[in-house]
Design a protein around this nucleic acid. Structure first.
Ligand SMILES: [Mn+2]
Ligand SMILES: [Mn+2]
Ligand SMILES: [Zn+2]
Ligand SMILES: [Zn+2]
Lengths: 143, 143
DNA sequence: CTCCTAACTTATAATCGGTCTAAATCTATG
DNA sequence: CATAGATTTAGACCGATTATAAGTTAGGAG
């Protein structure tokens, strides 16, 4: 299932709906992200965005990804100890994480039920629930 | 519930049971970790271990925490984008994570049921399931 | 014991994501 | 056109972690 292709104007509308001023760089970064599914580091996005003619600075890539996450246009994944990943898929879902390759795979959250969690501490607002299933590919005929 | 106090020999036995050669530094680090409950960065452990007479280098603290985690004597927590935390509590449990303060709180996993997860990819071994509930303390009278 | 080697520890340099700074550029408005 | 606020940028900087290379330790062989 390839992700929907968004027009320039649709991207701009998405940004506006999330309270983000649609500058050229932000539109370009959003377009790259939403034209694919997957999980991307800031460096990944920097490479994607500068593959073609456009030129966006590293600082802007970092700033923009942080802004998008804060405005909940994309989701931040803390799962690799060395870098943050960003996920354009905002449908609630969980992840498999291959601890060897670092690869992330989506798990639809519709079928998943989590019960028995305690109440939040008083005055606390839930931000989200992350479920990460760490796994390792069984050593293929090593011995 | 304060954690059990371990004797020097008990610490050594714990390390041996996990296939870890009990050097002076490793015993000291293990003692500091297991004499409290909580979630500690490598810097935290470095400070704990060098509070008293003993002197353990930063490199050894990092190496030892990595070794302990690999041998499953402690658990690594990837939840803060800037640093790794280590958890001496090996009883299966989950975590609240205050995204503002960075504070981690344990959630007993006994009561928690997670159903509807898909099967692992073929050939994959499960390493563990991490559930992290991100929350934020409601803005106390700000405005 | 003393010698020898492998395991371990250490100080320090290096790496690398990520953030900060201060200057340049843009954009909307008068 | 002039102005100010928002944004972008190059490059300096930072802090956690890892790599390097030299020193130390422990324990078995002789
Ligand atoms: Mn592009
Ligand atoms: Mn100590
Ligand atoms: Zn995902
Ligand atoms: Zn814990």
């Amino acid at each position: 299932m390839e992700p929907k292709t968004y027009t320039h104007d649709e991207i701009i509308a998405m940004l506006r709906e999330h309270g983000i001023n649609p500058t050229a760089q932000r539109v370009e970064i959003a377009r790259e992200l939403f034209s694919r599914k997957g999980h991307y580091s800031a460096e990944d996005v920097f490479a994607l965005v500068n593959n073609d003619q456009t030129q966006v600075s590293k600082a802007t890539v970092y700033n923009t990804l942080g802004l998008f996450a804060e405005k909940r246009l994309i989701r931040q994944l803390i799962v690799d100890p060395t870098k943050v990943f960003y996920d354009p898929n905002m449908v609630p879902h969980h992840h498999f994480y291959d601890v060897v390759t670092g690869k992330l795979t989506d798990i639809d959250a519709n079928d998943v039920r989590i019960t028995g969690l305690p109440a939040l501490p008083p005055g606390a607002q839930m931000e989200g629930v992350d479920v990460i299933i760490r796994m390792r590919q069984a050593n293929p005929t090593a011995g």
